[in-house]
Design a binder for these strands. Structure first.
Ligand SMILES: [Mn+2]
Ligand SMILES: [Mn+2]
Ligand SMILES: [Zn+2]
Ligand SMILES: [Zn+2]
Lengths: 143, 143
DNA sequence: GGTTTATTGAGAACGATTCTCACCAAGGCC
DNA sequence: GGCCTTGGTGAGAATCGTTCTCAATAAACC
């Protein structure tokens, strides 16, 4: 089991959630993934750890992780893929539409500028989703 | 009929689309709206102009407008609301989760910075969705 | 007006997500 | 360790938004 899996479990436990087999499996799967996964993909991988897991529980666990701030939902096209996220600060996602890898980026200048704009507009931000969709460096159309 | 409705109709017509009653109604509804609307809301309003319009046609017209660059889909929560958009350049959306108003903002500094980051990452951007979710100036919790 | 053919409305079909409910097991307590 | 309480679970039904199907319609062009 990954160290970060234990960290998240401990935090969930302290928030009053029970650490069940299915939850452990789902968390482990998401942390191990190199790219964002759909709920169905998470289910398939989780079943290799705990064969009995059900799809509804995958959705429920995603909700828990989202509510506790350990997971973001990122969309590619109409499909709802998911992604772990450690960052709490303003950052953005480069989503490769070919390999589905999600790269997280940050920029202080970017953040400062955005904050200033929000203040000017009198807008109180609660959350953000900054997604740039295209091709990552590895997936450029060769030519 | 709004002038901009006629402009869009003319452009669609020149692209080979037929200017039908339902399409006219949907375009007019979206342009008149002060906030983003769901497909169901668009249907309800379009039926006040042309009572026979069907839901499938609303979806189809949204697809056409999207394909022709006259409309963006913006999500609030899980629901897919829609919005007209004139801007072609990099810009972002301030989405009020209370009144659903979508404000479009732009910033040259922001754009330049983002472009630089993308270049550094070797990422080829095709489209973007920059959404800040929260409360607009009018919807601040009083006090 | 007549012809062609893209577009339409109604309802069926679909896929993703959520709900229901009887059963189960995590975690606190002795 | 065993017992109890109750939150969590799996299976399948239900729901919801969206897409599809197809016969009927009406734009657009002559
Ligand atoms: Mn992130
Ligand atoms: Mn826009
Ligand atoms: Zn890629
Ligand atoms: Zn508002």
């Amino acid at each position: 089991m990954l160290k970060r899996t234990r960290d998240i479990q401990k935090a969930l436990s302290e928030s009053g959630y029970r650490i069940t087999q299915p939850r452990q499996a789902v968390i482990e799967v998401i942390l191990r993934a190199r790219r964002s996964l759909s709920p169905e993909e998470i289910l398939a991988r989780a079943r290799k750890i705990d064969p009995g897991v059900g799809l509804a529980t995958v959705y429920r666990t995603l909700d828990v992780l989202h509510a506790e701030g350990y997971l973001e939902r990122v969309r590619i096209g109409n499909k709802g893929y998911t992604l772990t996220c450690t960052e709490k600060t303003l950052h953005f996602h480069l989503i490769c539409e070919r390999c589905r890898t999600v790269t997280e980026l940050q920029s202080d200048r970017f953040s400062r500028d955005l904050m200033a704009q929000l203040r000017a507009a009198g807008f109180e931000a609660r959350k953000h989703a900054i997604e740039i969709i295209g091709r990552c460096a590895k997936c450029q159309p060769s030519e």
